[in-house]
Amino acid sequence: MLTLIGVVIVVAGFALRLNPLLVVTVAGLATGLAAGLGLVGVITAFGKAFTESRYIAIVWLVLPVIGLLERAGLKERARAAIAGIPAATTGRVLMLYFAVRQVSAALGLTSLGGHAQMVRPLVAPMAEGAAENRVGPLTDETRFLIRAHAAAVDNIAVFFGEDIFIAIGSILLIKGFLEQNGVRVEAAHLALWAVPTAVCALVIHFVRLALLDRRLRRTPGAAAVGGEP
């Protein structure tokens, strides 16, 4: 039972809003100690896992070019481009991105998106710009709500699109795990059974984005707030 101490620390730490970096580290150390690794063993295990997961951080390599383009006005341009399309609303911009992201992920093109490459410099400013078209300058609260939805669309569309592609990691993991347990399945059949959920995800989230549009229509623009934070 002591093994679960890490889970307890994580849940308590996040609930108390302590610094996640600290919470995760303490949880890891406690779990390792409870498992009898010893202090040196735990720190070694931490170092090993950190070293082996460095590939996760590679996404930050896009920052120099994205920052450079932001300095040259990329976000302002993205906003202005949307201002030229009267039919654009926040919900519709995000629906379009959802559909493109989900379909491309289903074709195995999961790198066609991402928060650093697409959402911050392009999708979020476009979604904000579309709302500004309608109601004028936005309050910070509205702006943050729209940005959170832009990030959410990127996640949901790729999660429930990628499994339709047969060579994606999760399909291979399922197939491998079932085979270990003596159950043979076809990757194509697994991918096929991702389709109903993918359709549900699209329908559910499109309805929510339409509701977001309705909510934004009722939100008065910020009369006195200018500029971006």
Binding site: M1, T3, L4, G6, V7, V10, N19, P20, L21, V24, T25, A27, G28, T31, G32, A34, A35, L37, V42, A45, F46, K48, A49, F50, E52, S53, R54, I56, A57, W60
Partner: peptide, 26 residues
């Protein structure tokens, strides 16, 4: 800020969970 490193730290936590057999207990 520090959030940039968090995914890597969580991967490390996951590895320790696996070593300690958290999944089995659950």
């Amino acid at each position: 800020g520090w959030a940039a490193v968090l995914p890597q730290m969580l991967a490390a936590l996951g590895a320790l969970f696996a070593v300690a057999g958290v999944g089995r207990v659950v």
